[in-house]
Design a protein around this nucleic acid. Structure first.
Length: 648
RNA sequence: GCUGCUGUAGCUCAGAGGUAGAGCACUCCCUUGGUAAGGGAGAGGUCGAGAGUUCGAUUCUCUCCAGCAGCACCA
């Protein structure tokens, strides 16, 4: 028999018979490893213990201690076990696919009756029974015809379709978990008993389109989470609870920031507290942009369809625009308008007023552009995805040579802003031409190169995101990481050769001839609405002092201090601090609790002692310790804290 | 938009074919209390909207609206 050479991670190599399996290799190394091994990595591929190795290879054996591999096997096997459990309980259910995802897995089923939350308990119970049977897991490679016949006979049309979409020359792998089988790439455990039976949980049921296509059947998806042990499962569930506590919709209500109601779905009623955050943020951005060479503009809300037809939006996005028909009594024809869903066509109108020279470029226009989009009802989510929002929008008209410098300038600007707002970490995605696009291939080659060179020159790391560009041009997307590690795509920088063409924007070059400028669409926060939501969730409502809507509450301990409370509030207000008095007939305990729940960063308590000494007792949110300061000192401190970072 | 679930007081939620309840919040009274809920009393609801079944519907059925989870979408 032919011999092959297997090389281990420590560099040692050993000869084996060709066709040896990792299970045999593990047993050869030691009896205990033979028992503990769960899978292997062979030449970089996660490898089932049963799969034979036919040629020289790098091999590493895995045990349950290897988090990544253990989780993959646990989750993947549980997907199979769950599908088996579902088919055992409801035999007429058809199976489709069930991949591993972050923290768990899902499996999509086709079944006439909807699953109910109570069913999840029954499925979980059945899964535990299956795990306890310790059924062997076996695998075979099948030819596609055999597999198609098999699934046709078993009335599993989705599997047949799946196989038909797999390239013809590939063999298909089948797996059995006991008597139950599934088409599957693997790898898997050796028997179902290896799955930890006490550290998974079925989480939810939801609809999902077959093959992600909204024109096709809606399947029922069951989600589960699974970990190596109970402690990790518990930690995950606790994390979910923590995330739920930060939900901006809940905090928005508790902190009296905003509300939404049926009459205006997807639009926000900002309360004084919420609007304070919003305007602080907007004022900050206004100062930053002005300092960075932008000229602020403002453009109409309701614009005739002619402009949207010219820009191409009418064709492409009509369904998502709010249409306004004006039917005047004496009008010859009624005019049809749309609420602007974006600002760029209007900015081109400003650019187009008067001849532009190359000397005018780059021209940077910025607008806090209030836009309306008729988002699908299912997409709406609190203040994060809404139908009425304001972008920190900006458009830079420039020559091709200027793209590089503008890109670098924008990235520097964005880093600076994110840092000020408390987000140190962000990631850059370079999104290239999508399937549905306008413009020639040459033009795309050209512009993609220009943008990639620009980003390379800045020295920032970036990730390629193929096919995710805008229909008119490539873009950079900026994802920031929040306090609990979640990523949010906020900033964007897009190169657009298309719109200047469509709306006939030109400049006169050095050569005295008209040229087409490039247009760079860019935003830093994205939308103010969404960004305020991100700030709320990232800080769990405890916003940095300068952004906190209620910065200081001055609370009386006895009503004899009421006059002094008002003096303190007046002094703070005069120093630019948002301060309010609480002289209600309540105990200090009660007031401290209420304002702590309301996330007020500083409570100043005053009683007899403070009145006498012209001092205050300072209590900061989240700290039990208090300190006594003079009124002058505390006013000075808090005035500094209230100053936005760019003005310090 | 699609699938499923939900909609009862400002908030969180209970409830039943005979037109409603709790806690917190709110108002008033007592209490002047030293850092996360002092005590008492009171007020507050067309049970998301419309239609149907019924002697009678907030409860059952249907339609619509809105919200939630996921999918699809996101210029």
């Amino acid at each position: 028999m032919a011999q092959i050479q297997l090389t281990f991670p420590d560099g040692n190599a050993k000869p084996y018979d060709a066709g040896v399996t990792p299970a045999q290799v593990a047993a050869d190394i030691s009896t205990s490893l033979g028992k503990k091994a769960i899978s292997a990595t062979v030449n970089g591929t996660h490898w089932d213990l049963q799969w034979p190795i036919h040629e020289d290879a790098q091999i590493a054996l895995h045990t349950m201690k290897d988090d990544a591999q253990a989780n993959e096997l646990i989750r993947h096997d549980l997907a199979h076990v769950m599908a088996r459990a579902v088919q055992e309980i409801w035999p007429d259910t058809k199976v489709t696919i069930g991949p591993v995802i972050d923290n768990g897995w899902y499996y999509d089923f086709d079944r006439a009756e909807p699953f109910t939350p109570e069913d999840l308990g029954a499925i979980e119970k059945k899964m535990k029974e299956i795990i306890n049977k310790r059924d062997p897991v076996t695998t075979e490679v099948w030819e596609r015809d055999r597999a198609i016949k098999f699934y046709t006979a078993n009335n599993e049309p989705y599997k047949v379709e799946l196989i038909e979409s797999i390239p013809g020359d590939e063999d298909l792998r089948m797996y059995w978990h006991g008597h139950w089988q599934d088409l599957c790439r693997g790898p898997h455990f050796q028997n179902t008993g290896q799955i930890p039976g006490d550290s998974f949980k079925l989480m939810s049921i939801a609809g999902a389109y077959w093959r992600g296509d909204s024109n096709r059947a809606m399947l029922q998806r069951i989600y589960g989470v699974a970990f190596r042990n109970k402690e990790k499962l518990k930690a995950h569930l606790t994390m979910l609870e923590e995330a739920a506590k930060r939900d901006h919709r809940k905090l928005g209500r508790e902190m009296n920031l905003f509300h939404m109601q049926e009459e205006a779905p997807g639009q926000i009623f900002w309360h004084p507290n919420g609007w304070t955050i919003y305007t602080e943020l907007q004022n900050y951005m206004r100062r930053k942009q002005r300092a960075d060479g932008y000229q602020e503009v403002n453009t109409p809300q309701v614009v005739d369809r002619k402009l949207w037809e010219a820009s191409g939006h009418w064709d492409k996005y009509q369904e998502h625009m709010f249409i306004v028909e004006v039917d005047e009594e004496h009008a010859r024809e009624k005019s049809i308008n749309a609420l602007k869903p974006m600002n760029c066509p209007c900015h081109v109108q400003i650019y187009n007023q008067g001849l532009k020279s190359y000397r005018d470029l780059p021209m940077r226009l910025a607008e806090f552009g209030s836009c309306n989009r008729y988002e699908p009802s299912g997409a709406l989510h609190g203040i994060m995805r809404v139908r009425g929002f304001t972008q920190d929008d900006g458009h830079i008209f420039c020559t091709e040579d200027q793209i590089e410098e503008e890109c670098a300038k924008f990235i520097a600007f964005l880093s600076d802003v994110y840092k000020d707002l408390g987000f140190e970490k962000f990631e850059i995605m370079f999104a290239t031409r999508p399937e549905k696009r306008v413009g020639s291939e040459e033009s795309w080659d050209h512009v993609e190169n220009a943008l990639e060179n620009a980003i390379k020159k800045t020295g920032h790391a970036y990730t390629l995101d193929p096919g995710e560009g805008a229909f008119y041009g490539p873009k950079l997307d900026f994802k920031l990481t929040d306090a609990i590690g979640r990523e949010w795509q906020c900033g964007t920088f897009q190169v657009d050769p298309n719109l200047p063409e469509r709306l006939d924007a030109t400049y006169v070059g050095e050569d005295g001839v008209k040229h087409r400028p490039y247009m760079l669409h860019r935003a830093c926060l994205g939308s103010f609405e969404r960004f305020v939501g991100i700030l709320i969730e990232s800080h769990a409502g405890k916003l940095p002092f300068w952004l906190a809507p209620r910065q200081v509450v001055v609370a009386s301990i006895t009503s004899e201090a009421d006059d002094y409370v008002h003096d303190v509030v007046a002094a703070l207000k005069a120093a630019g601090v948002r301060a309010e008095a609480d002289i209600r007939n309540e105990k200090i305990n009660y007031k401290v609790r209420e304002h702590s729940v309301g996330k007020v960063p500083v409570i100043l308590a005053v009683g007899h002692r403070e009145v006498e000494d012209r001092t205050v007792t300072v209590r900061r949110l989240g700290e039990k310790r208090t300190s006594v300061q003079t009124l002058d000192a505390v006013t000075k401190d808090l005035a500094t804290a209230a100053t936005p970072p760019d003005l310090l």
